[in-house]
């Protein structure tokens, strides 16, 4: 039992990331409001980045910026996850922008943000499901 809690403590950040991911995922699935869905997607992305960042951290080491020309590998954390997260953030910003633009279009046409209502209206408009 003690081993179990020890391991939980060892992977506390990934567990936090998973819980955050769950919050985002459930928001995305359960809310019918498009803006809230988009918020949910963003939370999911953030959770993924949290987990990725946690792999770059090594206790007692500095951030990966060389200080005074000292390139001892035991001094610095891993620069790769930070770079990947940077890429990921830009991707999620772009995706959010596109989703929000889609929302603006939908709102302009149907005057609603509720996907069910929009769906019903679209069905009426075109006749077929």
């Amino acid at each position: 039992m003690q081993g179990f809690w020890e391991q939980v403590w060892n992977v506390r950040i990934p567990i936090a990331a998973v819980l955050l991911f769950a919050v985002g995922f459930v928001t995305l699935l359960l809310h019918r409001n498009l803006l809230k869905k988009i918020i949910g997607l963003n939370i999911m992305d953030t959770a993924a980045y949290l987990m990725l960042t946690s792999f770059g951290y090594i206790e007692g080491r500095l951030s990966p910026i060389i200080q005074n020309g000292n390139t001892d590998p035991a001094l610095y954390g891993n620069p790769l996850p930070a770079g990947l997260v940077l890429t990921g953030i830009v991707v999620s910003v772009s995706v959010t922008a596109v989703l929000l633009a889609l929302t603006v279009r939908l709102y302009a046409r149907y005057h609603s943000l509720n996907l069910d209502e929009i769906y019903a209206m679209a069905q009426k408009e075109h006749g077929l499901g």
């Binding site: 950040i13 792999f55 090594i58 206790e59 060389i66 590998p73 610095y76 891993n78």
Partner: peptide, 21 residues
Amino acid sequence: FGAAGTPTDNEVALRYVRDGM
């Protein structure tokens, strides 16, 4: 989390830090 010698603390990170500059 936060320990040295995990799989991500490998030759890839080593070269980035040691030879990156």
